[in-house]
Write a protein that binds this DNA or RNA. Structure first.
Length: 133
DNA sequence: GTGATGACGATAT
DNA sequence: TATATCGCCATCA
């Protein structure tokens, strides 16, 4: 159906999802790909970010990092931008995914735009890091 | 059309 | 946690 974000370009959809990431939070390439769906995977998101062009001023690309919490970009101070938004990093330069990981857009928004909802973080995860605090 | 490359992910060690 | 290997897909030469 003709959704307001029924863009034919998969990249355009990726940009829309990226704009949903609130300040102070970060999302992984895999998360964005899971929300966009339509065959998009982590690598597709990476290509979209590399092809931002003039959209870099409108899309919070800095909030998109890899699954390890590290920053693959070079030349641009992506980490500095995140820290300015309240994102904290550990001593190894990895973002605290357990504290700033984006839970995904609201189910209503996702359905309204034809996107998927980020799967819940449940499973055989013992979460031993819970003792950090 | 094919091969190589890439802002990646998941699994195994 | 880090490294190695494989798989996935889009873009470019």
């Amino acid at each position: 159906m003709a959704s307001p974000t029924d863009s034919q370009d998969p990249f355009e959809r990726i940009y829309v999802v990226c704009e949903q990431v609130p300040s102070g939070q970060v999302a992984t390439y895999g998360d964005i790909a899971a929300i966009v769906g339509q065959g998009c995977d982590a690598r597709t998101v990476g290509h979209a970010m590399a092809a931002l062009g003039s959209r870099a001023a409108s899309v919070p690309w800095q909030r998109i990092i890899n699954r390890t919490g590290g920053i693959s970009t070079s030349g641009v101070r992506q980490r500095e931008l995140l820290e300015a938004e309240g994102v904290t990093f550990d001593d190894k330069g990895h973002a605290r995914m357990d504290a700033h990981h984006w839970a995904g857009p609201s189910a209503a928004w996702a359905r309204e735009h034809g996107f998927n909802v980020l799967p819940p973080r449940e499973g055989p995860a013992p979460s031993p890091q819970l003792t950090l605090f």
